[in-house]
């Protein structure tokens, strides 16, 4: 009886967005009277950080500080339309729509500043701290707060922009089946180190080493958090979670969180995660989607590591102690 160690890897190519009847998202950007810019979206932030990323993209495009951006995702009845946050599409679709809206708002902002400063809009630039200034001059400038007040109360101008990103529907070629189903492909690889107890059948994931190519990580720390949270979900799918462990029988199925197995804080694997960036031509500042793919590679990597450790090839999740022991019995019987 022994604890057997093994290593396995798996790689994933994952599409960003989808291709049903076309895949659009809209964004509206407008300045308040105090120079804050509201990004209106119907896209939902489930905790993945979409609002943070949308604000970063808006700030970068407008040339204003991040603190000046208010992302409003309050109401799908009144907000500009979004297909939703799924298919790893949020950053890509919303980011592109926000860039388009923020570019139009920036043009309106510079036009208002040009009128207020009595210069040509093409000679103006933003300095990233909140000022719109004449290129090459330190004197001729106006702060966005003063500009927004002037635009509203004196110039009678709006500072606003509209944006949409549409991934058009792509029909397959009837002869070849060729089509354009997604906007980009992100890539990842996970190497899993496991230990298998050949007496109890228990698999322990010792470490997961993850590498992700996501175009550009607009917020690298949040991307890393998604990678490691997703890898944890991968471990959970691989080793623990089952609504119907003896499907199609309902026997021993969990009825609540107390009976639904998930790894807890004591079951963590050592995680190591790196991000590689090859900006995508059609992505917002080069970003592809990450989201769903983070739970994908860990599962086959763990299965391959179990095979490496003890020779048992598991093809049904979760990889329970029972399935490991039955596999070991079969190996012994056929030896």
């Amino acid at each position: 009886m022994a604890k057997l160690r093994g290593r396995g890897y798996a790689a994933v190519n994952y599409p960003t967005g989808m291709n049903l009847g076309g895949d659009p998202t809209q964004a509206l950007v407008h300045s308040t009277t105090t120079g804050n810019f509201v990004v209106s979206l119907s896209s939902v932030d489930l905790g993945q950080g979409l609002k943070t990323v949308a604000a970063q993209v808006a700030a970068e495009t407008l040339g204003l500080p991040y603190e000046n951006i208010i992302v409003d995702t309050a109401d799908t009845d009144t907000g500009p339309h979004c297909m939703g946050t799924f298919a790893s599409r949020g950053t890509h679709r919303v980011g592109n729509a926000v860039i388009m809206a923020a570019q139009e708002a920036r043009e309106a902002m510079l036009a208002a500043a040009a009128e207020e400063l009595e210069v040509d809009a093409e000679d103006l630039e933003t300095d990233g701290t909140g000022f719109i200034k004449l290129k090459g001059s330190e004197e001729v400038k106006i702060h966005v707060v003063d500009l927004a007040m002037a635009a509203h109360f004196k110039l009678g101008r709006t500072i606003a922009g509209r944006g949409i990103f549409l991934k058009e529907r792509s029909y397959p070629d009837p002869e070849t089946g060729k089509m354009d189903p997604d906007s980009a492909q992100a890539h990842a690889c996970t190497v899993a180190d496991v230990e298998v107890d050949d007496e109890t059948g228990v698999i322990e994931v010792l470490a997961l080493h993850n590498v992700y190519e996501v175009g550009r990580a607009i917020n690298p720390r949040m991307a890393k958090q998604q990678i490691e949270g997703g890898a944890w979900m991968g471990i959970s799918h691989a080793l623990y979670e089952a609504t119907d462990p003896y499907y199609p029988q309902r026997d021993h199925g969990p009825r609540d969180f107390e009976e639904y197995l998930m790894p807890g804080p004591a079951d963590n694997a050592k995680m190591e995660s790196d991000i590689i960036e090859f900006p995508a031509a059609n992505g917002p500042y080069g970003a592809k989607g990450i989201g769903e793919m983070t739970a994908n590679a860990p599962i086959p990597a763990i299965a391959n590591a179990v095979f490496d450790a003890c020779g048992v090839r598991l093809i049904e999740m979760p990889f329970t102690p029972e399935s490991v022991l039955r596999g070991l019995d079969e190996l012994r019987a056929s030896a």
Binding site: G47, G229, A231, W232, M233, M262, G264, P265, N268, M271
Partner: peptide, 15 residues
């Protein structure tokens, strides 16, 4: 925190 479930983070950043 063993009685507290988190479904997003994988716990490590919380620890």
């Amino acid at each position: 925190i063993s009685g507290n479930v988190c479904r997003c983070t994988g716990y490590e950043s919380i620890i």
